[in-house]
Design a protein around this nucleic acid. Structure first.
Length: 431
RNA sequence: GGCGGGUUGCCCGAGCGGCCAAUGGGAGGGGACUGUAAAUCCCCCGGCUCUGCCUUCGAAGGUUCAAAUCCUUCACCCGCCA
């Protein structure tokens, strides 16, 4: 090993700590010692939706930091556990998803996860795994004799994810068993790949340590756990959620424009924490940004950097560039009439939009806004006008029955609808 | 299997025959102030062909001039007993 690599590995835990990315670990000194050599570690993600969201990104990027430091990452997708449902962090029973649906989600999520890790490097390429591969073939008898025998129900009941549910509406046997399945994964990867570290969100602590117990009982082996804190926001609302739901990585589910805007609109009080969590900038770069941010938060330099870096990472640098230019063009400062058609077209491409035919009588502003899907109903659109939050090409819409005219279309083609300060949509006029 | 309690709008939760599109809180939305922040204050928050009309209070029937509110059946959830 080169001395450079050695430095990197020694710095890893320190760097994670500084970034606030460690909630809990098993014996930290022992972990630090083990990390002096490349180790194999894994992160599991269950397919509970067709896409992962920004919350899933937190431990995923920690995995990336481990790979950059020379360790061997295994990304596990929960083809089996996703069929069962993790009770952790939930106060009610999940509804079961259809097997074929979960299988589709597994494939989509694999694809998404793979973007964040290097599978090609000769040193320590990332590996993908699916726990369905070893869970599905196992018989009930094997499960009960070889695995179940190592679990004490008393201990299982004491896990927070179970006990909190027992105090409320109860828990099914299915979800109660979840911790056993996840433990089997860790055991399997320990045996197969000498995987000795599992990473997860802090709600996974119970499931991970259950795995450590299983490894000890079944193999007499020892391994580590490292959890990442649940990311919180200063205003107490959930990280990664907007009015419309989660912020997804799939561009069909959350447009890159909306993705960029999510970060750009971060609370001042959160932005540095987010940068530490997600950014691959160096410590000194981040400290410099933090200084500039506290001197002049209104300039939003840190916000902008965060939005750029993450949109580049998740989508692409080209897309990041495009949505930023679009936002600049559309956000008020510039006179819309002065934008050339190409700029306008590419900016509008990022927005929710609808089309109207120039043959027909042009609809009202209310009808059009509803058609773009920015509001749920025409009543909602009317309310916006009534409350004077409605704009057409940055000019206030005067009345509920305000109808568009041909002259409103910039370059003869596009009209920009706005609801409130920052919710934009577009109308395209087609012949 | 028996007995009891419950199922109300995005969430929590009042209402318990007419005054109910349904109190209150949270979330969400618009405005003012700002910086496409936060906090604060004001307003809104089922739908529509919108001074009126239509559809909602687990589902389906019924009683009544009138039901979220009463009755019947069904479904699901929770508790206690077997």
């Amino acid at each position: 090993m080169t001395s450079l690599q050695q430095d990197k590995q020694n710095d890893l835990l320190e760097d994670l700590k500084w970034r606030g990315l460690i909630a809990q670990t098993t014996d930290e000194a022992a972990l630090a010692a083990d990390l002096k050599q490349p180790i194999t570690l894994y992160l599991g993600t269950d397919p509970t939706a067709p896409s992962i969201h920004v919350g899933n990104l937190v431990p995923l990027l920690v995995m990336r930091r481990f790979q950059l430091a020379g360790h061997n990452p295994i990304l596990l997708v929960g083809g089996a556990t996703g069929l069962v449902g993790d009770p952790s962090g939930r106060n009610d029973e999940r509804s079961l998803n259809d097997e074929t649906v979960v299988a589709q989600w597994v494939n989509r999520i694999k694809l998404q996860l793979s973007k964040f890790m290097d599978f090609e490097t000769s040193n320590n390429p990332a590996v993908m795994a699916n726990n369905l591969d070893w869970t599905a073939p196992m018989s009930t008898i094997e499960f009960l004799r070889d695995i179940g025998k190592h679990f004490s129900v008393n201990q299982m009941l004491n896990k927070d994810s179970v006990s909190s549910r027992l105090e409320k509406d109860g828990i099914s046997y299915t979800e109660f068993s979840y911790q056993v399945l996840q433990s089997m994964d860790y055991l399997e990867l320990f045996r197969r790949s000498n995987c000795t570290l599992q990473i997860g969100g802090s709600d996974q602590w119970g499931n991970i340590t259950a795995g450590l117990d299983l490894i000890r009982r079944a193999e007499g082996g020892s391994a580590h756990a490292l959890t990442v804190p649940l990311l919180t926001k200063a205003d107490g609302t959930k990280f990664g959620k907007t009015a419309g739901g989660s912020v997804w990585l799939d561009p069909e589910m959350t447009s890159p424009y909306a993705f960029f805007q999510y970060w750009l609109n971060s609370d001042d009080a959160d932005v540095i924490k987010f940068i530490k969590t997600f950014s691959f900038k160096s410590r000194s770069e981040i400290e410099e940004l933090e200084k500039r941010h506290s001197e002049n938060p209104g300039a939003r330099e840190a916000h902008r950097e965060l939005a750029r870096e993450l949109t580049s990472l998740v989508h692409s640098p080209e897309i990041a560039q495009r949505v930023e230019v679009a936002a600049r063009a559309l956000f008020g400062q510039a006179d819309l009439a002065e934008l050339d058609e190409a700029t306008l077209a590419s900016a509008i491409a990022e927005l929710p939009r609808t089309t109207v035919s120039s043959q027909d009588e042009l609809p009202t502003w209310v009808d059009l806004l509803a058609a773009t899907g920015v509001v749920e109903s025409k009543s909602a659109a009317r309310r916006i006008v009534k409350e004077s939050g409605a704009y057409l090409n940055n000019e206030k819409v005067p009345s509920e029955d305000f109808r568009l005219e041909k002259s409103h279309f910039l370059c003869g083609k596009y009209a920009l609808l706005r609801k409130g300060k920052r919710d934009l949509a577009a109308v395209e006029l087609i012949s």
